[in-house]
C-alpha cells in the first residue's frame, strides 16, 4: 500500500521559493503585457479602418485557435531555427502574452462596444477632454463589464505559465517534475504544486469577487448586474 509522506519532499524544498517567484513573475509580466496588447487589439477591432479591424480580427482568431504549447515550441525552437533566438523565459513570456492578448482583445472590445455612441457625443458637447472622457465616462463603465472575465483570464495566464516547464524554465511545474523524479514522491509533489496553483488562482478569484462587491456597493441606480 502506498504510504503518503509529504516529508519525503523536505530535502527538495530549497529551490521551491525561487520557483514560485518565477511563476509569479512570469504570470505578472504576461498579465501586464497582455493587457497592453488587448487594449491595442480592441482599439484595432473597434476602429473605423477596415484594415485595422481585419488585422485585429485575424490576430484574435489565429491565437485563440492554436494551443499555447505549440506557440511556445514555435517561438523557442522554430524561430531559433530561422535565426531569431529567444531564451526559455522570454519565449514563454511572448507566447503567453500573444495568447492571452487575443482573449484580452475580445474582453476589452466587449467592454468598449457596450458603451453607446451617444455618451461620447454627450461628453464632448459638455466640453470634456479625451482624457476626462475616458477617465470619468468610459473606463468606469467598461471596468464594470470586464472585471469578471478579466479575473478568469488572469487565472488562465497563471495556469498557462506552467507550460514554460517544457522549455526548461525552472518554475513551479518544473519543480514538481524534478522533485517527483528525484524522490519518487510524485503524488506528494503533484498535490503540493496543485495546492500552490489553487492558492494563486483563488487569490485572483477572491480579488475578483471583492472587486465585484466593491463595484456593487457604489453602483449607480439602475445599473445592471
Amino acid at each position: 500500500m502506498y504510504e503518503f509522506a509529504l516529508a519525503g519532499l523536505l530535502p527538495y524544498t530549497g529551490p521551491l521559493p525561487r520557483a514560485i517567484v518565477l511563476t509569479l513573475w512570469l504570470s505578472t509580466l504576461s498579465i501586464l503585457l497582455s493587457v497592453a496588447v488587448g487594449v491595442l487589439g480592441a482599439l484595432c477591432r473597434t476602429s473605423t479602418s477596415l484594415v485595422l479591424r481585419w488585422i485585429g480580427g485575424a490576430y484574435v482568431e489565429v491565437l485563440r485557435n492554436i494551443p499555447l504549447l505549440v506557440v511556445i515550441y514555435l517561438i523557442f525552437f522554430g524561430l531559433a531555427q530561422v535565426g531569431l533566438r529567444v531564451d526559455g523565459f522570454n519565449s514563454a513570456l511572448i507566447a503567453l502574452t500573444l495568447n492571452a492578448g487575443a482573449y484580452m482583445t475580445e474582453i476589452f472590445r466587449g467592454g468598449l462596444i457596450a458603451i453607446p455612441r451617444g455618451q461620447y457625443e454627450a461628453a464632448r458637447s459638455q466640453g470634456m477632454t479625451a482624457f476626462q472622457l475616458y477617465r470619468y465616462v468610459v473606463f468606469p463603465q467598461v471596468f464594470r463589464i470586464i472585471y469578471a472575465p478579466l479575473g478568469n483570464l488572469m487565472i488562465g495566464i497563471v495556469i498557462g505559465s506552467s507550460l514554460a516547464s517544457v522549455i526548461g524554465v525552472e518554475e513551479v511545474t518544473t519543480w514538481m517534475r524534478r522533485a517527483g523524479d528525484e524522490t519518487f514522491r510524485y503524488m506528494e509533489s503533484f498535490l503540493a504544486v496543485g495546492v500552490i496553483y489553487v492558492v494563486l488562482a483563488q487569490t485572483i478569484n477572491i480579488g475578483r469577487i471583492v472587486t465585484g462587491r466593491w463595484l456593487l456597493s457604489r453602483a449607480p441606480i439602475g445599473h445592471r448586474r
Partner: peptide
Amino acid sequence: DTVGDAYLAMQSGQ
C-alpha cells in the same frame, strides 16, 4: 523532455 529536444536546442543555439 527528450535527448532529441536537447539536441535541437543546441542545434538552434538555445
